[in-house]
């Protein structure tokens, strides 16, 4: 049925979706409330590993899809709680401190994934996850999983749009631009930041769980800083304060390399093993430098407020 579709193209598209989802969530953290996060891989990886370990190691009395749902829920909660803890620890730090703190958290997760061999399989990884359904060939299952992930990322996009239009979003923007002034508005800015960080970290964890199902394997090599850099590069390139910034930026970076060039560029095959991956990182870096020099607010420009916000009755 899906003979026309390359299996690698499915996983390439899945990867782009994952980075878009993470970029959208980082947009809320760094673009709206300006809470720095250099540990995206940690929250995402924690979700991936909590899901995987629970799914594989625990002897559940029921099968899929309940096993998947319970494990994914617990992975989401674990990442959310970790986000709450990290946000509380970095709440009063400046940007540099927050970057180091979140990077430290991601490093701890990576070290635990690599060293807790009994639980995680260590550096060699751990297999045994399945799709929560069986529609026949692996490619069909993967294709459907990509569709489900598309719906999830679409829901995250709608959530981001809702936050932009809500009083909560306006508070977050106020916190991001002038926190001392925002404190005098009658709402706890610390609580607003903690809630946001916990929610977005939880959703990062859910995306991690989706990754676990797609590849049916836990591999510490997937939770390195590269995933953080890909999300951040895409977001900054597209426009860190814009709702669609992550979508546009990630399509221009990860999408361009992992789908367009990978599958459609008429380049010698041997280039794809060494030259292209190196060029990918170099082009990401160069694009970031150029954007920061000549269009610091990203391709989409500065924050635009929705038209709705201009009418009185939208505030009641």
């Amino acid at each position: 049925m899906l003979d026309w579709l390359d299996a690698f193209l499915i996983s390439g598209f899945f990867g782009v979706l994952q980075i878009i989802g993470l970029g959208l969530l980082v947009h809320l953290q760094m673009g709206l409330s300006r809470v720095a996060n250099f540990g995206v891989a940690g929250f995402w990886g924690l979700g991936l590993y909590v899901f995987g370990v629970l799914y594989i190691k625990v002897d559940w009395p029921f099968g899929d899809p309940f096993q998947f749902l319970i494990c994914a829920f617990l992975a989401t909660v674990a990442s959310g709680l970790a986000g709450l803890l990290v946000a509380w620890l970095i709440a009063d730090l400046d940007v540099d401190g927050a970057l180091v703190g979140t990077l430290g958290f991601a490093t701890v997760v990576l070290i635990l994934a690599t060293t807790q061999t009994e639980l995680t399989g260590g550096a060699t990884g751990l297999g045994g996850m399945r799709f929560p359904y069986d529609l026949g060939p692996a490619k069909t299952n993967e294709f459907v999983w990509v569709l489900i992930t598309t719906v999830l990322v679409g829901a995250i996009l709608l959530y981001v749009r809702w936050v932009h239009r809500s009083p909560y979003g306006r508070l977050l923007i106020a916190v991001g631009t002038n926190e001392p002034l925002a404190r005098s508005l009658g709402k706890s800015t610390t609580r607003a930041k903690l809630t946001l960080f916990a929610t977005t970290s939880a959703l990062m964890g859910l995306l991690g769980a989706m990754q676990g199902v797609m590849f049916r394997f836990l591999n510490p090599a997937t939770i390195t800083i590269n995933i953080t850099l890909a999300a951040l590069a895409g977001l900054i390139l597209g426009g860190i304060t814009r709702v669609w910034g992550a979508v546009v930026g990630v399509l221009f970076t990860v999408g361009l390399f992992d789908i367009v060039i990978q599958f459609y560029a008429p380049l010698p095959q041997e280039w794809f093993t060494q030259a292209i991956p190196v060029a990918r990182e170099a082009v990401f870096g160069a694009a970031l430098v150029l954007v920061l020099l000549f269009r610091p607010k990203g391709l989409l420009g500065e924050m635009k407020r929705p038209q709705l916000m201009r009418r009185i009755h939208d505030f009641n």
């Binding site: 306006r170 923007i173 106020a174 631009t177 407020r305 505030f315």
Partner: peptide
């Protein structure tokens, strides 16, 4: 003022 927000916001 919060510069990114409109007057209404």
């Amino acid at each position: 003022v919060f510069p990114d927000l409109t007057i209404m916001e």
